[in-house]
């Protein structure tokens, strides 16, 4: 223990409005704390920059899983255990269930929240690649002008990160909801994490992928070099952890694979094109856990494994 708990303030405002009011009053003074599985580690290590915390873990307004016909709405306080236990998520968004199961240990999944995971903004976090390929949106809330008024803004999750450990979240804002479309029942889903061990591991790299494979000739193609053929990729989304300073979508690789053929005769060319595009947008680093060379190579292998899996 390298911090003295008496040197830290922590309160639990009675309502969401009260939390937002305090955040708005002195922006940047308070750190919201939910499950504590990140911040308490930083506290023990003496790494906490600020000394005042607002507990939000007790707020029922932030812990919900709402299923509508078109989307699944997750409150920021939804724990990884909540995610894992939800059968609709498991059926519709299997990658999210999988990613939740890989996040820390059971004991930490019981506390850690999806909102905390996203706001911590680690490039190695487990759920972002899944949320990126599922094209999630995030709703951020803050105090409005009128007393008790809450204003919100919603933006694509892919635009949430600005830089290393930095998000668009203003100091007066809280992440409220993560919304994911229920639109992937006919897609192929893929997620693989490569960590330091099988459990309790921070990823060295991870790749999530979502694709729609079509057997019929493509009607449109903005890539004239691609010859639409019997089996090809109709749409594809790719996202990765630990390949950049933040969780990323692999747009260039996606573009290179749009309408790409999966026919045996063309597969090698498709793989070559995918790897070449991937190389332009994977920019990992050497750190204590792995090397840039390894991360790039393994993520490319995972991409190839996914593409090969689409051929059958």
């Amino acid at each position: 223990m390298r911090s003295d708990p008496t040197q830290f303030a922590l309160t639990a405002p009675a309502s969401l409005q009260a939390v937002l009011a305090q955040l708005a009053q002195n922006p940047g003074t308070h750190i919201p704390i939910a499950g504590g599985t990140e911040l308490m580690v930083a506290l023990a290590a003496g790494r906490l920059p600020r000394h005042s915390f607002l507990s939000i873990s007790h707020l029922p307004e932030l812990r919900f899983i709402r299923i509508t016909p078109d989307a699944i709405h997750l409150g920021a306080n939804t724990t990884f255990t909540d995610i894992r236990r939800n059968p609709t998520i498991a059926a519709d968004l299997p990658l999210l269930t999988l990613a939740a199961s890989w996040t820390g240990s059971i004991a930490n999944q019981n506390r850690a929240t999806l909102g905390g995971n996203l706001c911590n903004a680690s490039p190695a976090a487990d759920t972002p690649p899944a949320l990126l390929v599922y094209d999630a949106t995030v709703t951020l809330i803050s105090s409005g002008a009128a007393p008790g008024e809450i204003v919100q803004r919603t933006l694509p999750y892919r635009d949430f990160y600005l830089a290393y450990k930095s998000t668009v979240l203003r100091p007066d804002e809280l992440l409220h909801t993560i919304t994911i479309p229920r639109a992937y029942s006919v897609h192929r889903h893929f997620l693989r994490k490569v960590g330091t061990r099988n459990a309790q591991a921070i990823s060295k790299t991870a790749l999530a992928a979502l694709a729609l494979v079509s057997e019929s000739p493509a009607t449109t193609s903005d890539s004239p070099s691609t010859t639409p053929c019997a089996r090809h990729i109709q749409t594809i989304r790719l996202a990765a952890a630990s390949l950049a300073d933040r969780p990323i979508r692999l747009y260039a690789t996606e573009a290179a694979l749009q309408n790409a053929s999966l026919a045996p005769a063309h597969l090698d060319a498709t793989l070559r094109r995918a790897r070449a595009a991937f190389a332009t947008e994977a920019h990992p680093i050497d750190d204590i856990r792995s090397t840039a060379r390894y991360r790039t190579a393994v993520a490319a292998n995972l991409l190839e494994d996914f593409l090969r899996s689409l051929t059958t």
């Binding site: 680093i285 050497d286 060379r293």
Partner: peptide, 14 residues
């Protein structure tokens, strides 16, 4: 290999 690890950096934790 692991000779290239950069222990001064941890991308998950500053």
């Amino acid at each position: 290999g692991t000779e290239d690890l950069n222990p001064a950096t941890d991308l998950d934790t500053e």
